[in-house]
């Protein structure tokens, strides 16, 4: 396979990243090399190896259901590029 521009557009869309037309060529070139290389993994015979999702042989890590005071709202909102009435503000979202 090769990373053509159409594929890059689709992946960029899924990643929510805008790519300018004049950047597209460059990205497609990079991605073609990178993905082309990564794809060699398809040819490896992994037999019946199970996917390794965690390296730690640990399970059942829990916390108790004990509520604590929440964080100061001002501190949470401080970094927001736009805020109003204690809320984070975004351009109007029309329900899909």
């Amino acid at each position: 396979m090769s990373a053509d521009k159409k594929l890059i557009r689709r992946i960029a869309d899924l990643s929510n990243i805008h790519i300018d037309d004049d950047e597209l060529e460059g990205f497609a070139g990079d991605m073609d090399a990178i993905i082309g290389y990564m794809e060699q993994i398809k040819n490896i015979d992994t037999g019946d190896a199970k996917p390794m999702e965690h390296v730690l042989p640990v399970h059942n890590v829990f916390r108790d259901d004990i509520p604590e005071d929440s964080f100061e709202r001002e501190k949470l909102i401080e970094n927001a590029p736009s805020a109003e009435d204690g809320c984070f503000k975004v351009p109007a979202v029309v329900e899909q």
Partner: peptide, 15 residues
């Protein structure tokens, strides 16, 4: 064929 396969290879490497 990519992500899951990589996890399998990860297992082989750990082994």
């Amino acid at each position: 064929e990519l992500y899951i396969k990589a996890l399998k290879v990860r297992r082989l490497i750990a082994d």
